[in-house]
Design a protein around this nucleic acid. Structure first.
Lengths: 185, 185
DNA sequence: GTCTATATCAAGATAGAC
DNA sequence: GTCTATCTTGATATAGAC
């Protein structure tokens, strides 16, 4: 595994180079050791500096987390756009959604466990990530939100190991996607 | 406001009377001040005792939380059974689900944010709470899990204020319930 | 069943020097 | 951009007396 020094290509470039390195290290720390390990001290350790130095780059922890969430939204928007451009957009999108969440489970949690820090996010980013889901729902916003809720519910309940251990989740996904694929009338 | 002393009627009675009072106070504290406020110290304050005394009643915080979760499962099982016994079980159940979550949002989070403490829960309780959903899905477990995922997704995304502020959630619920109401073939 | 005293650990953030 | 020193706060849990 490479580490620390590498700059993640999807870190927003409004940030200074050093800030981007910090976000990159924070994402690695988060994913490797979980949300509980994402502290200013541990992050600084990983970068070989002291915790107070981080405050020269981010005003507080919330600003750092917002930058991390922005990375997640950019990446998911890109993945969703690609999936929705192929055959069977609805199932492709569902697959891309689940794959993203399981590739970066801790980031996914950070992105969904509370309100988005909308005041700190690039304008239009939230909408951009939602757009492919709306398109795959035939432009019906209500259907898109229902579909998102279903996908998020399946995903987060599985991530949280909240389903019974022996549950057949493949069938549950299939049943839900079939339901949302049907035209309303 | 009354406090501390009152015993919640749905606290499991395998516990000693004093332990039930503690669980009751913990549920109040959790709901009034949020998960961050549920600490052994704050709980003890509310009961007029010192934190170490709590450990005579619960071996650790996890055991206390398990008792709280058991209360939530008992209550939701009761509410779901009642809702599913009436006309339009699927919509009644969905309403009961959402109502429960919004009546006790912090308890709902505690119940869904991670794996159940299955080793500390009364046997059969998890299944009892799930049963009405399976029944309303015509006995189809996969459909029941999809429906649960949808309901949880709608609920938790709303509780987390994760939908756009202006989203029409009533329509999203309706679209999803219509989808799951249709027979699969 | 409750107490005091204590161990152990850790968090976010600021001031001010270099 | 980084440092040291520090503030302020707070957590879970145990030992052993009463």
């Amino acid at each position: 595994m490479d580490s620390g020094r590498r700059t993640d290509s999807s870190v927003p470039d409004e940030l200074s180079p050093r800030a981007r390195e910090i976000v990159s290290a924070a994402l690695e720390l988060l994913e490797r050791e979980g949300a509980g390990a994402l502290t200013m001290r541990r992050l600084a350790d990983r970068l070989g500096i002291r915790a107070p130095s981080l405050y020269k780059h981010f005003s507080d922890k919330r600003a750092l987390e917002a930058a991390m969430i922005a990375v997640g939204l950019e990446e998911s928007a890109r993945l969703f756009e690609e999936a929705a451009s192929k055959a069977d957009p609805l199932r492709g999108l569902a697959r891309a959604y689940r794959d993203f969440a399981f590739a970066r489970p801790e980031l996914y949690r950070l992105m969904t466990d509370g309100p988005l820090p909308r005041d700190l996010l690039p304008a239009g980013l939230e909408e951009r990530a939602a757009q492919p889901v709306i398109a795959a729902s035939g432009g019906d916003q209500a259907a898109a939100r229902g579909l998102w809720a279903f996908a998020h519910g399946m995903t987060i309940l599985e991530l949280n190991r909240r389903f019974p251990p022996d549950a057949d989740l493949e069938s549950a996904w299939e049943r839900g996607l079939t339901a949302f694929a049907k035209k309303r009338r």
